[in-house]
Design a binder for these strands. Structure first.
Length: 402
DNA sequence: AAGGTCCCCAACCGCGGTTCT
DNA sequence: GAGAACCGCGGTTGGGGACCT
């Protein structure tokens, strides 16, 4: 079948659009709408192909476009969405009103990518750029493939191993401030293998793996959802609880959680509340999604937070990170800010998770396009690429829908 | 001032998916 | 069901402005 590329048509202009062409296209679409794009150039009196007209309208002439530089909030949102969605620019753009996929793609390729690399993050995987020597890399991959900690983002986790002897294997890596950004994986039984957090052991940063069962976690009846009863388990570490959470800066949408365990390490994690959505920077967003509704106002207590996280926070948000707040400092911060209550965070119902892939699946009928694509997105983000490895994920969500 | 290089971003290109005939 | 046309997406290109030497 011969597919006609518009570029092969004769006598059609290419290249930059002139103001006159813009005006013709704008006038035509304003009056008649675009209808069938292939007929637009003829009706509008343009020597362009329909595809070119469509692109010009979408990327430049549309009245609802937001012009100008991206805000730090938009940039951080793009980074967070990219971690979940990858190069699905149109889906990312859907979360940024007034921005086009092309614009976001350009920003990513020309700006954000470099920033991430500069900060030691691989922009493709959102993992720390490893400077590990070859031998260490081989070890890394070997362990990954046998379901060690690194496997969460790159290979299919194996629950039996994770819950037995190897669940807290540590792996020496080049220290990096981004270690708190790990994504959860999904085990065969549908339980979550959570992110790895940096822990300081004898001066070395190590990865450690935790497991959170879907049957555990946040109680729907908890009256202080964000810092109550998030139980984590691994074979050699007793269940942990999030004992406090911190909103380091009132203009920020990010919160940090400290999870105390019996090995005296502090486990910091991060999640983000923005436009009523929680983004998958941490297993906590998955936990919240999994647990359904959280509808009580929640206190966030300032607490000590890890300097690595602070560094990352400052990079992402271009705002100073405040930590080690005393109660009086926290109180002062609360009084000087115009946004609601520094120490509280209002978390409301299902809308909170409406944009979480997990929740999209719960809302989408199995078999629908949304269902399949979202499953794939999750599988890919979890390093589960084969269709067979999707099965446990499917079952998990089907069970939850039921 | 001139030439070279870098980088941004608008636009192109090709592909896959969907709809129409 | 097959072929053609259309649509939308993501990767890539190249024009041109900014910056450097």
């Amino acid at each position: 079948m011969g597919r006609h590329s518009c570029c092969h048509k004769q006598k059609l202009r290419k290249g930059l659009w002139s103001p006159e062409e813009d005006e013709k296209l704008l006038n035509h679409i304003t009056k008649f709408g675009h209808g069938c794009w292939s007929s637009v150039p003829k009706l509008a009196g343009l020597q362009r192909c329909g595809k070119s007209c469509r692109l010009r309208w979408i990327n430049y002439l549309r009245p609802d476009l937001k012009r100008g530089a991206f805000s730090p909030q938009e940039e951080s949102l793009i980074i967070e969405l990219h971690a979940v969605l990858g190069n699905r620019w149109s889906q990312i753009a859907a979360h940024l009103p007034g921005r086009t996929d092309n614009e976001i793609k350009n920003l990513w390729n020309s700006g954000i990518k470099k920033k991430l690399k500069k900060n030691g993050i691989d922009p493709n995987t959102h993992k720390p750029l490893s400077k590990v020597e070859n031998s260490d890399q081989q070890k890394f991959h070997a362990i990954s493939e046998s379901n060690d900690v690194a496997s969460v983002a790159s290979t299919k986790p194996n629950l039996s191993q994770a819950s037995s002897t190897s669940s807290s294997q540590s792996l020496r890596v080049i220290p990096s401030p981004e270690l708190s950004f790990r994504r959860p994986g999904i085990a065969d039984d549908g339980s979550f293998i959570t992110c790895f957090q940096p822990t300081d052991m004898a001066g070395e940063l190590c990865f450690q793996q935790l497991k959170c069962s879907t049957t555990m976690g946040l109680s729907a009846s908890s009256d202080a959802a964000l810092h109550h009863n998030w139980n984590w388990s691994s074979s050699d570490i007793s269940p942990k609880q999030v004992h406090s959470a911190l909103k380091p800066n009132k203009s920020s949408d990010n919160y940090y959680c400290n999870i105390d365990g019996d090995n005296s390490s502090q486990w910091s994690s991060i999640f983000n509340l923005q436009n009523d959505h929680i983004f998958e920077n941490s297993p906590i967003s998955w936990l919240l999604a999994d647990c359904g509704r959280v509808d009580k106002e929640t206190e966030i207590h300032p607490s000590v937070c890890d300097a690595e996280v602070a560094k990352w926070f400052e990079y992402l948000h271009h705002t100073p990170f405040v930590f080690n707040l005393s109660p009086s400092e926290a109180s002062q911060m609360e009084q000087t800010d115009v946004t609601p209550s520094a120490g509280t965070c209002s978390v409301t119902g299902g809308s909170m998770i409406s944009n979480c892939p997990h929740d999209q699946i719960l809302q989408a009928p199995p078999g629908s396009d949304m269902y399949g694509k979202t499953l794939q997105a999750i599988a890919v983000s979890s390093g589960q690429n084969s269709s067979s490895s999707l099965e446990p994920v499917k079952h998990m969500f089907q069970d939850k829908k039921a």
